[in-house]
Amino acid sequence: MTQHDMTHPHDAETQGSLKSYTIGFLFSIVLTIIPITAVLYGWAEGMTNTIVLMTAAVLQFVVQLIYFMHLREEKKPRYNLVTLILGLIILLVIVIGSMWIMLFNMVAT
């Protein structure tokens, strides 16, 4: 049981491979070209445009996390993932909270 787990070299957690890095790189190139063409050729207007652009950006963030930062290969007590989630919660509260109060404030306008 333990033997089986120890077949991996010690620092396998952050190793990755040329293949995984290249896949990640190609993904991020594609995910950059899509929003650029969407904007330059004016595929979508208003809200749809915003959703397309933000989806591409968030997907690219996920690609970087998985293929470049190796978040998925972390060992069991997943402190990195937990602190990342904490950071993202604070980030979303700050950004969405500010937008909600400052841009959609019915009292001020």
């Binding site: 950071g87 980030l91 700050i94 841009l103």
Partner: peptide, 24 residues
């Protein structure tokens, strides 16, 4: 390395506030 990761998360918060300010 994990300590540096925590620093990165605080940087996430810094950029979060700057993005919030920009959007507003």
């Amino acid at each position: 390395t994990f300590g540096f990761w925590i620093y990165l998360m605080t940087d996430v918060i810094i950029f979060g506030t700057l993005f919030a300010a920009y959007i507003v």
